[in-house]
């Protein structure tokens, strides 16, 4: 014994690391991703690989350029890449995955300080940037028909807006419908979301209030509520993006407010907006409001006196 190591307490720690959490998110995304491979074919795999690969690449070189520690080991770039891929249509060209990754990792995440510091969800922002920039982003194909050039389709929400014939609840639930890779299979997303909740990685406060408020509002608005919650990116957004740690409030109260806000905005866009889908915009808007929600939904400290009394 030469020297004893002196450090402040506690001297014990648990073994959940940032990478453990991210790995669990990846696992939770796999059922819905697997469904996408089944419904949209093998092209899903290289498209996902491009997104994940370029996210890792951008994360690595951005940190290198900024002379900061290498953070690819925390797996957050992998999660972002996977989520981004799940927000693309299967027909998206590979270069679009690269551009999306650049927006997500470099612009939204690293320029704001890296993990935990981003003001908005990287994958959502990338999806929106791609959506408003490239018309290809709304080129949807029919599931189980792998000829990517010929058969085009519409997402169920577009169908609902135009009044065309709708897919059945079952098709919507298992994912046999048009849409981006990750959003079609509600069942897979539900399994993944519940897995994360079970592992206590996420709280169900935001997903429940998000999905619940969309259900309630569309029901009150005279639409088919079950259809509204199963169609589009609601489950993907609610379970995997409205639960993002960095860009949503910390307290349960805050998470509920966040979820309600997302639900209301989603409903308003779907009902009155020109876009058929409002989930991404609602999450992005609420991301921006998160610091304010946090200010107003802090925890009550045991035995704390009110601030006003304290000033005097």
């Amino acid at each position: 014994m030469d020297k004893l190591i002196v450090s402040p307490s506690p001297h014990d720690e648990n073994y959940t690391k940032t990478s453990t959490i991210m790995l669990n998110v990846i696992i939770a995304l796999l059922p819905a991703w697997g469904a996408a491979v089944y419904f949209f074919g093998m092209r899903v795999i290289p498209l996902t690989a491009v997104c994940i690969g370029s996210c890792i690449f951008f994360e690595y070189f951005c940190r290198l350029l900024m002379k900061r520690s290498n953070t690819i080991g925390d797996l957050s770039a992998v999660v972002t890449g996977l989520l981004l891929a799940m927000n693309l249509p299967v027909t998206a060209p590979y270069w679009m995955g690269v551009i999306g990754s650049f927006v997500a990792i470099v612009v939204v995440k690293q320029l704001f300080g890296g993990i935990g510091q981003n003001f908005a969800n990287p994958a959502i922002t990338a999806r929106i940037v791609l959506m408003v920039s490239f018309p290809t982003m709304s080129h949807w194909i029919k599931p189980l028909e792998y000829d990517y050039d010929a058969v085009s389709s519409a997402t169920p929400l577009v169908l609902a807006k135009s009044g065309d014939s709708l897919p059945s609840y079952l098709d919507l639930f298992i994912g046999k419908t048009g849409g981006c890779l990750g959003e079609v299979c509600a069942a897979g997303l539900l399994i993944g979301g519940l897995y994360l909740a079970f592992r206590r990685i996420i709280s169900l406060a935001a997903p429940v209030s998000f999905i619940g408020s969309v259900f309630l509002l569309s029901w009150l608005g005279g639409e088919d509520p079950v259809y509204q919650i199963l169609a589009g990116g609601l489950f993907l957004g609610a379970f995997f993006m409205a639960t993002d740690y960095a860009t949503t409030p910390i307290t349960t109260k805050g998470k509920i407010v966040f979820g309600l806000g997302c639900g209301i905005i989603t409903f308003v866009i779907r009902r009155f907006g020109t876009y058929p889908e409002g989930v991404s915009f609602s999450i992005l808007l609420m991301n921006v409001l998160t610091p304010y929600i946090e200010q107003l939904t802090r925890t009550k400290v045991l035995g704390a006196k009110e601030a006003a009394k304290n000033e005097g």
Binding site: I250, T299, K300
Partner: peptide, 23 residues
Amino acid sequence: DERQTSGCIRCGRCVRVCPLGLM
């Protein structure tokens, strides 16, 4: 074993476990 400290991911675990409800 002293693990490397990395950026706060705002997971909220610290808030959840604080017996006094601090953040």
